[in-house]
Design a protein around this nucleic acid. Structure first.
Lengths: 217, 217
DNA sequence: AAATACATACCGTCGTTCGGTATGAAATGT
DNA sequence: ACATTTCATACCGAACGACGGTATGTATTT
């Protein structure tokens, strides 16, 4: 294939294709050759020019996934017109309600048989999202009195583990009913911690997303 | 190598070696040849006679790990002299206090860079331990009035995720202080759910295990 | 001319397969 | 009772195809 004047476009094309295949077939069952075949004209040399290994592609892929979500998190974190608890609630609302989710849940990657991708996203969440966004918000909430969290780091980790991981129907392969019950249980737990951040809208949206996911297998 | 009259011994030898290597080097970085080299005399054919694939070895390995733990769970579950909550407490106590844990934490597998083994154990826990042991105990506790859990399956899942996964220093690479804070946070959450099942002994033991783990890297 | 964006041929290793041998217990024959 | 045959099983090791990765070459841009 002809050389591209804007090499980042090529890199992005590789990542697009890789992400699609990783979600369809799983990371381990996607070969470099698979990516090349779906790429149309590009060769192995091109891939290894832009990325140094298959693992590196996975890292870049998860980076791109979370980068998008992190822009939203940053916006909410930096607002001056909300207290900590409201920011936390806004984050959960946005995470669920943003329309991008439909797309993701429609592609319907079966994360439960894709441990590498799952783990990579979880690790990014724990190493980046938690310390950069969730923990600061909890600390702000502690300072302004809207949240009572003695150990913000640990509470943030737990929050993300429960909401982004356990509550995610793609990861635990939940039915609509299970998603519903998980939401209820989690809501009670959060209320017990003084974090009444869930509402009816979110519950309905979670149901809807679970539905979308299960329809697409 | 000469033919073994008791083939299960050979299979167990393979599993012993495989587990050791999986924990030392990680599942993905352990080759079948690595296992053969450490096995002393046995050949590739022998391995593929006893196991149908490398994945199959991983499954057998995790089976053996959880089987031991499940025997203890079964004993407690079937006791007639305890109510549900006491059984739950007994399970957490035993899980932490049993001396086998020293051994495991001394070998100190870095699960955080071993997603396949980690995932395999998590899946066994969710698919087997939860429905067979934890959920029945919660239901018993619901019936005898010692526990208030509207959705036993979901509460069980959450419990196991938080105690066996999040609280495990091998998985989240926690320091002693982090382990301590996690324990505190989790204790409060559980109390909020009417599950005061943690005590000072457990906290000290968790500290001790975290210490052991970190000493061995 | 130097650097970059790709192509291509090739390498070592991997998981897996498969034809084969050795062994021993059960079935059969004497 | 012992000898012979049968047959499933434990194990061997060469070979295979696919894999991730590299070395080197070439064309294009700067």
């Amino acid at each position: 294939m002809a050389r591209n004047k804007h090499p980042e476009e090529t890199a992005n094309l590789i990542l697009d294709t890789a992400l699609r295949l990783f979600m369809e077939k799983g990371y381990e069952h996607t070969s470099i050759q698979d990516i090349i075949n779906q790429l149309g004209g590009l060769s192995k040399g091109a891939i290894y020019h832009h990325f140094k290994s298959k693992e590196d592609i996975l890292a870049a892929v998860t980076d791109r996934i979370t980068a998008d979500s992190n822009r939203m998190l940053q916006e909410i974190r930096d607002r001056k017109d909300m207290n900590g608890k409201d920011k936390l609630k806004a984050i959960f609302r946005e995470s669920l309600l943003r329309p991008v989710q439909d797309e993701i849940f429609t592609v319907a990657p079966d994360m439960s048989s894709n441990p590498r991708l799952m783990y990579s996203i979880l690790k990014e969440t724990m190493d980046l999202t938690v310390p950069d966004y969730i923990q600061p918000i909890l600390e702000e909430g502690s300072a302004d009195g809207s949240i009572l969290a003695e150990h913000p780091k640990e509470v943030s980790e737990m929050l993300m583990l429960l909401t982004n991981f356990w509550l995610n129907p793609m990861i635990f392969n939940s039915t609509v009913e299970e998603s519903c019950r998980k939401f209820q249980v989690l809501d009670q737990v959060l209320q017990g911690m003084g974090l009444d951040v869930f509402d009816e809208d979110m519950k309905n949206r979670l149901e809807e997303l679970t539905q979308i996911y299960r329809e697409h297998q």
